[in-house]
Nucleic acid binder design. Structure first.
Length: 361
DNA sequence: TAGACGTGGCT
DNA sequence: TAGCCAAGTCT
């Protein structure tokens, strides 16, 4: 009786969720209108932008992006440096590098059309388990099991899975599989994510508004706010570094960071090593008289906190630090350089703390 | 498999 | 404020 009742309830979950989605779906610029086919390029782009990034941040960036590169062919033909600069501020820059690689692979290896299966999509750079499933379901209607952080939260509560993440992932995925319908797989995935984003939120879930609260075991047990449980995190170490601001006339020296690693492939201000104790002027791009400012810039990364000292100098005759990827960039044009936030903060601190040390009256 | 990999907003 | 969280992927 109990098992039978439970089974019936679970079968009704997708239907209830889809009915709710039909009236409550969020209006987002990458979603197709009802009856309109989804554009795989827009679905893919939005999914990549939304990785670990809020809808509020992505919305304007997505719109500007598709205005500039309206198709996968346009993106494939773009200059990679322009793409990286356009991504500046969004973080996780491997996403932008992989966006270009994947676009070029679609054009070169798939005749300009995205693969229409989860397995085919999964083979493209930057498409992991989640994104491949999401694009397959949303753009192509494939029944794929789409599990992101929203779905993990909804499912962990719905089935009262108390095992902490990440150990709970296999059980959560299996449970998600049992409620994924064959029809409207894309709408179902988006319904789950909308539910997680607006009702089944991490803190203070609005259970009274939930279309499936009658089926929710965590709610019945009164434990929804502490699910999903999570393993404890490590403390973040503190590191120190120095940013070097070298002027020549009305320009400042920028470098291009190595393709791999932190802020990879991005334009940047030169820095020395990022280490456990303040490194002073170690790693300066040219020898010379540097002036250390009193101001410092603090920046938090996912896995460490960074405090940067700011050193300024003026290039002298013969100063040619220019390694590959070095360029003298007009200071007035700095916003167009597409600097990661860390360096944009430093540039602001330097240009506001000190009048230009270059030509001035 | 656990750690690397950004950033901004909220509490 | 310090920490947590947001439509993850790669190695």
């Amino acid at each position: 009786m109990d098992a039978k009742h439970s089974s019936i309830a679970e079968q009704s979950i997708p239907a209830q969720l889809l009915a709710w989605y039909d009236v409550a779906a969020r209006d987002l610029p990458w979603r197709s209108r009802p009856g309109q086919a989804a554009d795989p390029y827009r679905v893919w782009l939005s999914e990549v932008m939304l990785q670990q990034t809020t809808v509020a941040t992505v919305r304007p960036r997505f719109t500007a992006w598709v205005d500039r590169w309206p198709s996968v062919a346009a993106l494939a033909a773009a200059d990679e440096a322009d793409v990286m600069a356009a991504w500046a501020g969004l973080g996780y820059y491997a996403r932008a590098r992989n966006l270009v690689k994947a676009a070029r692979a679609v054009v070169a290896d798939h005749g300009g059309a995205f693969p229409d299966t989860e397995a085919g999509l999964r083979a493209l750079p930057g498409l992991g388990a989640y994104t491949a499933a999401a694009v397959a379901a949303i753009a192509f209607g494939e029944r794929a099991v789409v599990v992101d952080a929203n779905v993990e939260r909804v499912v962990a509560r719905l089935f009262a899975i108390e095992t902490p993440l990440p150990a709970a992932r296999p059980a959560i995925r299996a449970a998600a599989d049992t409620i994924t319908p064959d029809a409207r797989a894309g709408d179902f995935a988006q319904a789950m994510m909308d539910l997680g984003a607006t009702i089944c939120t991490s803190r203070r879930p609005r259970c009274l508004l939930c279309p499936i609260r009658a089926d929710c075991r965590a709610h019945a047990a009164g434990i929804e706010e502490r699910l999903p449980a999570k393993a404890a995190k490590r403390a973040k170490p503190q590191r120190y570094g120095t940013i070097f601001w070298l002027e020549r006339g009305a320009c400042v020296l920028l470098v291009r960071r190595l393709d791999k690693g932190l802020l990879g492939g991005m334009r940047a201000l030169p820095t020395g090593p990022w280490v456990e104790a303040p490194p002073g002027l170690a790693g300066a791009p040219v020898a010379g008289r540097w002036r250390l400012l009193d101001d410092r810039v603090a920046h938090g990364f996912t896995h460490f906190d960074l405090e940067l000292a700011l050193a300024t100098g003026v290039a002298q005759a013969g100063d040619e630090p220019a390694g590959e990827g070095s360029e003298w960039w007009p200071i007035a044009d700095l916003p167009r350089a597409g600097l990661p936030t860390l360096f944009a903060k430093a540039a602001t601190a330097i240009t506001t703390a000190t009048p230009s040390t270059g030509d001035r009256e």
